[in-house]
Amino acid sequence: MLKGFKNFMMRGDVVIVAVGLIIALAFSTLIKAFTDNVINPIITRAQGGHSAGLGWQLGDAGNDATYLNIGSFISALIYFVIFMAVVYFLIVVPYKVVQAHRGITVFGDPAPAKTCPACLSEDIPEAASKCRYCGTDQPVVGRG
C-alpha cells in the first residue's frame, strides 16, 4: 500500500501540480499585500471624508458588524482577477507549452459531443454509432 502511494506521489504530474500550487500560494500572498496596501486605500479614499471604507453603516455608527463594506468586496474582486491572471500566465500557459513540446494537449477544447435522443445523455462522442449508456443506435452526424 505504501509503495503504491509512493509511486503515485512520484508521478511527474503530481510533482508539477505541487510546485504550481506552491508558486500560486506565494503569488497569493504578494497579491493580497498589494490589494491590502495599495488598492484598499484608493477605494477608501474614493468615498472621501473620514470614512472607514467604501460602503454604508446599516446600524449604529462605529459598529463594524453592521457596516456594509463594498470596498472590501471590490478589493477581493480585484485580488481574484489579478490572482487568476498570474496563475494563468505564469503556470497554465508555460505548462501548455511544455506539454505541447511533449506531444500532449492539455486544457484544450472538449471533443465534439451529441445528445442521445433516447436517454438524453449529453456526452456521446460525435462519431459514435451507439449510445454508451442505453445502446440506442445514434444518427450519423454529417460533416461538411
Rank of each mutant, 00 (worst) to 15 (best):
R11I: 02
V98A: 05
D109T: 07
C131N: 09
F27K: 05
A26W: 04
G55A: 01
G20F: 15
G53S: 03
A33K: 13
R132N: 15
D137C: 05
I70C: 01
G62L: 00
F83V: 00
L2S: 13
N37P: 05
M1H: 11
K114N: 11
F34N: 05
D64F: 05
Y95G: 09
I91P: 01
I39N: 08
I91R: 04
F83M: 03
Y67L: 02
G4T: 00
A128W: 04
T115D: 15
P125C: 14
T44Q: 01
Y67N: 03
E126D: 02
N40P: 08
D60N: 07
F34A: 06
Y133I: 00
V19G: 09
V106P: 01
A128G: 08
M1A: 11
I70R: 03
K32G: 02
V87A: 10
A65K: 01
V97S: 14
F107V: 08
L77E: 02
E126I: 06
I42P: 10
I124A: 11
T105C: 12
L120M: 08
H101Q: 13
T105W: 11
V141W: 09
R143V: 03
V93A: 15
P112Y: 13
G53Q: 02
I82D: 07
M9R: 06
P117E: 07
G49A: 01
C131W: 05
H50S: 03
L77H: 00
L54F: 04
A26I: 10
V81I: 10
L25H: 05
F73L: 08
I91F: 10
H50Q: 04
D123H: 13
M9L: 05
S51R: 00
L21T: 10
N37H: 12
A127L: 12
F89K: 03
A46V: 02
N40Q: 14
P94C: 13
F80Q: 05
R45W: 01
G144L: 11
D13Q: 06
S129T: 09
D109Q: 14
Q138W: 00
F8D: 09
K3F: 03
A111R: 15
A127Q: 15
V38E: 12
V19M: 07
G59M: 01
A127I: 10
Q99F: 08
G20D: 09
Q99N: 06
A26H: 08
A52Q: 03
G71W: 01
L58G: 00
D13L: 13
Q57W: 02
G144P: 08
V106G: 04
I74W: 13
D36W: 09
L25I: 02
H101T: 11
M10E: 15
